[in-house]
Amino acid sequence: MECVFCAIAAGELPGHRVLADPVAVAFLDARPLFPGHVLVVPRRHVETLTDLPEADVGPFFARVRRVAGAVERGMAAAGSFVAANNRVSQSVPHFHVHVVPRNRKDGLRGFFWPRGRYPSEEAAAEAAARIRAALEDGRADDGPG
């Protein structure tokens, strides 16, 4: 089956587009957290952030930044939540960034899942060391594995 986001970007499927250019397409989420919840997708099909070519990262996120400002102004929101899933919880396997208008006391609390603490400073240091090591060997650019 063809990618639904690619089909929306190509105009083959309907979507309430708010931005379309050679770099990205942004459209209203069909199942919004709040009215004005927008998805920003790269026009080029890539499944995850780590699949997005490095040269495309800056131009793509410039569009995300622009859409975030427009969502806040257009929806008279106090701010916005900007987030992306990478594989897990990614309902469509085409990289996308959620831009959600936010207001105080809107019913959302921080992230949308339970947050916790590291069991110890040692556990936090170990997690940080593993990420630093992955950055040093370049694996962070390639995703898992």
Score class of each variant (00 low, 15 high):
R117A: 15
E126Y: 03
V99Y: 10
V88A: 13
F112G: 15
D21L: 07
R132G: 07
L108S: 05
H45M: 05
H37Y: 09
C3E: 01
K105F: 09
F34P: 04
G58K: 09
A30H: 14
G107Y: 14
V38S: 01
A24C: 06
R115E: 15
P114N: 03
G36C: 10
I131C: 04
W113F: 15
Y118Q: 05
A7N: 12
H98V: 00
W113Q: 05
A78M: 12
A129Y: 05
A124G: 10
L135T: 03
V23I: 15
I8Q: 03
L135P: 02
A125I: 06
I8V: 11
R102A: 03
R63Y: 04
V4S: 13
E72A: 06
P22F: 01
P101M: 06
V100L: 12
F81Y: 11
H94Q: 10
P144A: 06
A78S: 15
A140S: 15
A133W: 07
A84Y: 15
F111K: 09
E72G: 02
G11K: 08
A30C: 14
G15F: 01
A78N: 13
L108A: 07
A62K: 10
R109W: 10
G15Y: 02
N85C: 07
A129R: 05
F60D: 00
R43K: 09
R109I: 10
A20Y: 01
G145C: 06
F27Y: 11
P144N: 12
G138H: 07
R102H: 07
R132K: 04
